[in-house]
Design a protein around this nucleic acid. Structure first.
Lengths: 208, 208
DNA sequence: TCATTCAGTGAACGACTGTGCTCTGAATTC
DNA sequence: GAATTCAGAGCACAGTCGTTCACTGAATGA
């Protein structure tokens, strides 16, 4: 399996990537359903017909963008999952991870947040499936924690959904801040306190 | 002010409304930025050029859709605001209001949820402003409740944001259920318990 | 070395778009 | 009742779109 791609294959992959990058660049300011094939190839600097060497049509291109976008986010998801305990310090670090990724992967996150409820059904479904997977994993992580003793499975899932949705909402809010540091700081501070309140609710959930 | 519109004015308003309705109908399955002028007039059953008698261009039409959509939602917002205490029964009734509105105003809510992070900046801003207003009002309501004694203003605002975001997330999830009663019931049940957990967190917020 | 593969080009097509213009006929105004 | 207004129809325009197809020339494999 140590096959180094020849110049032809590697050039092809590079062009494919430049199409995806061009797409994400354009999608920062518009919806996927209004993205044109010619528009993408123009931005990527190749001929309209060249597009078909890489994707059968635009819907397939959209799905490829979902793959591409989630691909480079895997490390963020892992970082967040590994830190879901309820100590305040852990909350702070989780939010920091999110805030950092919003800066480093702005275009990808904007695309996912936008198309999560966007006009293209298969894309919506693919994004929903990934987020559900994230919440599933989170539920497992929570179940393994000592403070979850006595919790039934449905309630753990409920809590995992709350965490997952809160993360998504925070990402969306940070994107809407559009780089304004003050606004971002306000959002981060609010998100921290919200997570803290949720932690308190969690701690007293079984009190009756 | 008891002026009954003449047949001409009332006919005009009726046509305008049929344009808005046609737009919302089309937008259940696509994004605003891909909506065409001819497409709307075709759906509404009038000539493309007739469009200009009612709106200067498509962006203005989009903004009018935001107004239209929020207009008929005012009663929902009021119903939710008036019920934000933390008794379980009140939580149940709030969620019921939301679930009912998702059925009664599906097209309008879908439009708002979709375009909240959609590709048209002015529309996004207008929707954000309305939701912010909702959270502002909610913060005032919360401040007036006895259980908010000792809370500082920023934390009340934080809690109001959490409630508001949770409502939006729940609406979005219900829309994605696409009318499937079982899925809807699962979402409603989860949302209820999440609100309950938040209420518990609220009750113990000042414990230290 | 020579035949084959294939990523990318460039021209052409039919369909569709937003917008401007003139026209019509019913509601309005005097 | 005559003059005016104006919502909507109908047509024309220039431009863009997605897709097709024959092509070129460099990488590939025998």
């Amino acid at each position: 399996m140590s096959h180094t791609l020849g110049p032809r294959q590697s050039q092809k992959q590079q062009t494919r990537q430049s199409l995806l990058d061009a797409g994400l660049r354009l999608l920062e300011h518009q919806g996927l359903s209004s993205l044109g094939l010619r528009e993408v190839t123009r931005e990527a600097g190749l001929t309209p017909s060249g597009f078909y060497r890489h994707f059968p049509d635009l819907p397939a291109f959209g799905m490829a963008l979902v793959e591409e976008s989630f691909g480079s986010l895997r490390t963020m998801v892992r970082a967040i999952r590994s830190e879901q305990a309820d100590a305040d310090e852990v909350i702070d670090r989780s939010i920091d991870v999110v805030a950092r990724y919003v800066h480093e992967h702005r275009a990808r996150l904007r695309f996912l947040i936008r198309e999560r409820h966007g006009g293209v059904r298969p894309v919506r479904d693919a994004i929903a499936a990934r987020i559900r997977q994230f919440a599933d994993d989170l539920a497992d992580d929570l179940a393994a924690q000592p403070q979850s003793a006595g919790w039934d499975q449905a309630d753990l899932r409920m809590l995992a959904d709350l965490y997952a949705d809160h993360t998504v909402t925070t990402v969306a809010a940070l994107l809407e801040a559009d780089g304004d540091r003050d606004t971002e700081q306000r959002i981060v501070a609010t998100a921290r306190r919200q997570l803290r309140l949720i932690s308190i609710g969690r701690r007293h959930w079984l009190d009756t």
